[in-house]
Design a protein around this nucleic acid. Structure first.
Lengths: 149, 149
DNA sequence: TATTGTTATACTCTATAACTATA
DNA sequence: TATAGTTATAGAGTATAACAATA
């Protein structure tokens, strides 16, 4: 009886590929973003905070998949650097509404530019159609898994 | 002067997509692999060890992007469970050649089966062409970034 | 001198439990 | 009673420094 499958080599393992692609993009982004004093994770927090409705810490965390205890330290850091500010919600005084300062908006705008540039460089080895297809596929996978929770 | 770019929403950020896709696959795989007593990372170690040439701990780590201090604990765990064994290289007595035990080969075979199944389920929302294109794109990105180091 | 494996240590990230203030 | 924020703490995962054995 012959072996049905040889072990899949590393380079074809989806888990390996996703992990290493993520790691490498994160490192490249961190380098590109360093001059602006934020990393990719913090920039994503700024993006969520910049959205239309005012959000509490927990609501920001929910959109990012970050729990509330982690949010405290994350917001602390951004507030120390003057990028965001907490203010009590008048309607529910348990909640901290988190808002961008002027410096935060500036950091967001310039950080986003840098992040786009880092992504563009990262995707450079792919042609336009391949890159678009990659993003579409990841969107489907992340959305599917989320709704199946 | 109009703003050139609105901040990219989370779902179009490559960093967010890669991180969450990786996380979700890792969790699904861990669940699928749990009955076999290994996680995806450990299974990848078994795959590397199962390769043709006998490898030392450092050589196994190099292929996985894991440093030698991390390898010690990783191999300790696998050895405690009787899946691998260390033996001194006769040619260079500084090196531990790591080999699979019979139980390790069995675990590898059955774990690989389970991992393939988990990947298949994870990719199910994509059609065959989309899934193949995703894997190809990731391979290009990981290979490119590695050679640029 | 350099390399392999090892240990101890530290640092990041994340999660859990318990507290407070509000509802 | 439940929820938002906070703190302290603990657990993974990973990285650095120093040491013993060997080359």
């Amino acid at each position: 009886m012959a072996r049905q499958h040889a072990p899949t080599p590393l380079e074809s393992r989806l888990g390996y590929l996703l992990k290493h692609a993520q790691l490498r993009l994160a490192r490249a982004s961190a380098e590109t973003l360093a001059p602006f004093g934020v990393d990719g994770h913090e920039l994503a927090v700024l993006v969520v905070i910049a959205g239309d409705e005012p959000l509490s810490q927990i609501e920001v965390g929910a959109r990012l998949g970050v729990d509330r205890t982690t949010m405290v330290a994350l917001i602390d850091g951004l507030e120390d650097r003057g990028l965001v500010e907490r203010r009590r919600s008048p309607r529910d005084r348990r909640k901290n509404i988190v808002g961008l300062t002027a410096a935060g908006e500036d950091c967001l705008r310039r950080g986003e530019e840098a992040r786009r540039e880092a992504e563009r460089r990262f995707l450079a080895p792919l042609d336009e159609e391949e890159a678009a297809s990659l993003v579409r596929a990841l969107q489907v996978l992340v959305a599917t898994e989320r709704s199946a929770e």
